[in-house]
Design a binder for these strands. Structure first.
Lengths: 201, 201
DNA sequence: GGCTACATGTAACCCGTTACATGATTTC
DNA sequence: GAAATCATGTAACGGGTTACATGTAGCC
């Protein structure tokens, strides 16, 4: 449909066997940039990455903790981060972004964003297939989703109060969109509940 | 073909003798229910599934067409759909939901929805990591995202006009949430653009 | 009669999820 | 000092993405 831009993004491979060897072998994905981005705030272990992510973007885009162990390793292989292994104890690994890593991140930030936003909402799927469901099921669905989005929005409100002066401007903006989104969806389900309640049983 | 059946023969053993044994071997995921749901509207080939999905939920939750070829095969192995292979020509396969399939779908619709909604928005990620980016980059990001969400919302408006009397009530509701969501995000980026424009260069 | 868009399928690889496993630290 | 929680990692599997491949229909 609107995919006119797609063919453009097919980066012509080196093709040359005398590969310049500057690394950057595998194409980076969203997970990669999340790790790079978090590391751009300072070195961290995988666990710390997990925490940083969990408190922020993990709210709307979740990552399994194992991803945050795997991905830095891949990035290290590509030379975008370095790994320092602690000597004693559990030999825990701290990752730090390299100049090349920063460059990759900057490129990504500068390049056009073509991907469409994906909203993976099981409740919404269910609503679409509701034809055969009972009214009570729908009512329950609406009630649950309402509660869920309301909780999340409230959580954001609280978070904002806590981080307001330490977080950076764009991070607060991110939070704000998160809130607007949750409030929108919360209201949708509430409206739906009210509509259902106004109906003859 | 050989590959589709292989995983099936590795069916996890009964393990528990008290197991109801009604089949339903592998756990179903969202993709499964999307296929079941679409088939609950009537039999279809994979291509038709692709179309049904593309015009509806594919707008916010995308599926690669290959998934819509693989998944029905899995469901067939589980007895939730049947497959009829056309005799002549390309021997194309039509899938039809079985009673067990309808039952599985109904169970899913009735059961509580625990998953959190995931919003996979690359633009939002970028905003979060913008600290190092130039103001022009941010402006461009906002402009692009604004346009993208605006287009999508407009598309929904048009769609609504087209399908208003043929679509079922809950499907229209789904569309409505889609619209509300897109308008919310559209406005967010617009506000951000205006904020940027009000600033000293 | 060649071109383009539609339709149908397969294969390989990567990565995301889930489960397993265990070491440190606090708590009681 | 046992139990729980935090912290750190690995392995296996399934499935999602991408690319490949080719058939069919309509157009000009």
């Amino acid at each position: 449909m609107v995919r006119a831009i797609a063919p453009q993004e097919v980066t012509p491979l080196p093709a040359d066997p005398a590969e310049p060897t500057t690394g950057r072998s595998r194409k980076l994905n969203a997970t990669s940039y999340v790790v790079l981005g978090m590391l751009s705030f300072g070195p961290a272990t995988s666990y710390q990455l997990k925490q940083r992510v969990g408190r922020t973007i993990g709210n709307f885009w979740a990552f399994a903790h194992s991803q945050l162990y795997d991905e830095p390793a891949r990035l290290a292989a590509a030379g975008l981060v370095t790994r320092t292994t602690e000597e004693g104890g559990r030999r825990k690994r701290t990752y730090e972004i390299t100049d090349e890593g920063r460059e990759a991140l900057a490129e990504w930030l500068a390049e056009p964003t073509l991907e469409q936003t994906e909203v993976r909402d099981t409740g919404l799927l269910k609503l679409f297939f509701c034809v055969g469901a009972s009214p009570e099921d729908i009512r329950r669905l609406a009630a649950q989703r309402y509660q869920s989005h309301r909780d999340r929005a409230d959580g954001y409100d609280q978070q904002r109060a806590e981080i307001e002066e330490m977080a950076d401007r764009w991070q607060l903006k991110t939070l704000e969109l998160g809130m607007r989104y949750e409030r929108t969806v919360e209201k949708f389900w509430k409206d739906l509940m009210e509509e259902l309640d106004r109906e003859p049983p």
